[in-house]
Structures are given as structure tokens and as C-alpha cells.
């Protein structure tokens, strides 16, 4: 799929996120906007092997959203690619919805098709993704695991426990993707943590690739390159713009999560029509 078409899909996903958050009166914004290009590539661009008509198809690639607060983006992607009706997006965070405030995989009918893990408490999805990759490795499956993380998430110690184990087990069927958008709830990440993310990940033994996460062609090439890495898991440090696509939301912790007013909603949708 050409980059321009994927950009159009990414913009649609961004509008979905803004609309879901606006109607829910809550939910996270800046991260889902910064990662929308990645999700367009994973779910629509042929990067991950998926089958929306058979969500738990044995040979699918697993996409674990460890940054569970990005879930409006996950839900929008799953709906738009055909896992469930788009209309269901309007139930986001409502009672008895299959689209809860953070992703839940319950092993029963309450689980939204395509949600691979219960995530949100940061760091936890990373270990679950590693466990899945180990399982796939043990049964010699060709499937890959993609673990989507945020840069703030790297402050959790569990992340480094998980990476250590994944490197030791040489889980090259696993790609970590870090959305380096530079913000967290109350800070710019550089106010809290010093040092380069890529160097730290490399120090732990990962095969690190850096790219512009809002440039679809570059990101696609990097995701494909990651598949060719052998004997160690790859990590893509994806530099992105927090709140990408909405001028007044960009590059500010204020929009990590916020309640969107009617005027802001209309302005944001207008900008995302481009």
C-alpha cells in the first residue's frame, strides 16, 4: 500500500481517537496520535500477518500494546481493519463495553477480538510479549510478536527484566517498538531521565534501529529490516511528535491525557481532515 494511502488511514485513526476521547470525556491523546502511523503500517500496511475474520488464527503475528493507555488507537485500528463494527467504537469506556479504559484479554466473550493482552500498568505487556515469543519459539512457529511501548514506560524496572530475558533466550521473533514522543503524564521525559534510549537498549543486548516514526516509508523499511535480525530481538526506537497532527496538541505533556472541549474537538478534527 502506498505511503499516501497509509497516511490517509493514519489520519482516520487519529480522528477516531479524538472522537472516542471526546465522547468518553477522557482517555489518552498524545501517544495514540504519535503512534497512528505505526498502527496504520502494522494493521493495514502488511507488516504484521493478521486475519480479522479469524482473530485468533494460530499463525497470526501478535501485537501486544504494552502502552495500554494507547488503547483508543488499538480499538480504532481493529475496528477499521474489520475485527468488529466501527459503530462499536462509540462505546469506548462505557459500562459493559468491550472497549474498556485499558485493554483486557479475559479469555471469554468479553474480550474484544484482536486484543492480545491485558495491559496498561506499564511494563507488564513487555513481559507478556516475551512469554508469547518464547511460546512461539518453543513450538517453532513462524509468527512474530510486536510489543508497542512508550518512552515513559522505560522507567519501569520490569521492562529491563523482560529485555534481559528476551536477549538471553535469543528471541529474534520479537520486535520491541518504543514510541519516543518525549512526553509523559506530568513531564517531558528528559526532565525525568537522562541518556539516550537507543544506547541503553543496545547496552542490554538488543539490535537497535532508530527511525522517524511519523515518516511512513522510513518506518516501514525499519519494520521490515527488524524482521531480518537473527539471534537477538530487535528494538525500534521510533522518534515521533507527541499529539501528531493537531497543532495545539503537539509536543506538550498537557495533552498526554485531557478532557477535550467542543471547540478543541472541532478544531482537531478539522486539522486531521488534511
Amino acid at each position: 500500500m502506498p505511503a499516501q494511502d497509509l497516511h490517509t488511514i493514519a489520519q482516520q485513526l487519529r480522528r477516531d481517537v479524538i472522537t472516542m476521547d471526546y465522547h468518553a470525556g477522557g482517555g489518552h491523546i498524545a501517544g495514540p496520535l504519535s503512534s497512528a502511523d505505526l498502527f496504520a503500517l502494522l494493521y493495514f500496511g502488511g507488516v504484521a500477518h493478521l486475519n480479522p475474520t479469524d482473530p485468533w488464527w494460530e499463525e497470526r503475528d501478535r501485537i501486544v500494546l504494552s502502552a495500554g493507555h494507547y488503547c483508543p488507537l488499538l480499538y480504532a485500528s481493529l475496528a477499521r481493519v474489520g475485527y468488529f463494527p466501527v459503530e462499536e467504537l462509540s462505546t469506548f469506556m462505557q459500562i459493559n463495553s468491550r472497549l474498556p479504559g485499558h485493554p483486557e484479554r479475559r479469555g471469554d466473550d468479553s474480550t474484544l477480538p484482536g486484543v492480545e493482552a491485558t495491559t496498561g500498568p506499564l511494563g507488564q505487556g513487555v513481559s507478556v510479549a516475551v512469554g508469547m515469543a518464547l511460546a512461539l519459539f518453543l513450538r517453532r512457529s513462524e509468527s512474530r510478536v510486536y510489543c508497542v511501548m512508550s518512552d515513559g514506560e522505560l522507567q519501569e524496572g520490569q521492562v529491563w527484566e523482560a529485555i534481559t530475558f528476551a536477549v538471553r533466550r535469543q528471541l529474534s521473533n520479537l520486535t520491541f517498538i518504543v514510541d519516543a514522543n518525549g512526553i509523559q503524564i506530568e513531564h517531558y521525559t528528559e526532565e525525568i531521565v537522562t541518556g539516550e534510549i537507543a544506547a541503553k537498549l543496545e547496552g542490554f543486548g538488543l539490535h537497535v534501529l532508530e527511525t522517524d516514526g511519523n515518516d511512513i516509508d522510513k518506518l516501514r523499511a525499519t519494520l521490515e529490516l527488524a524482521k531480518t535480525v537473527r539471534d537477538e530481538p530487535a528494538a525500534i526506537v521510533m522518534h515521533t511528535t507527541a499529539g501528531k497532527g493537531v497543532s495545539f496538541m503537539e509536543r506538550s505533556p498537557v495533552w498526554h491525557d485531557a478532557v477535550i472541549t467542543k471547540e478543541q474537538y472541532e478544531q482537531a478534527i478539522k486539522e486531521l481532515e488534511k
Binding site: 513487555v126 507478556v128 510479549a129 516475551v130 512469554g131 520490569q158 527484566e161 530475558f165
Partner: peptide, 10 residues
Amino acid sequence: QNMAGVAAGL
């Protein structure tokens, strides 16, 4: 902590 998550993934 990682052990618990790996077990869940398996």
C-alpha cells in the same frame, strides 16, 4: 515481576 508476565504470555 518478569517471571509473572512471561508465565502469563506462555
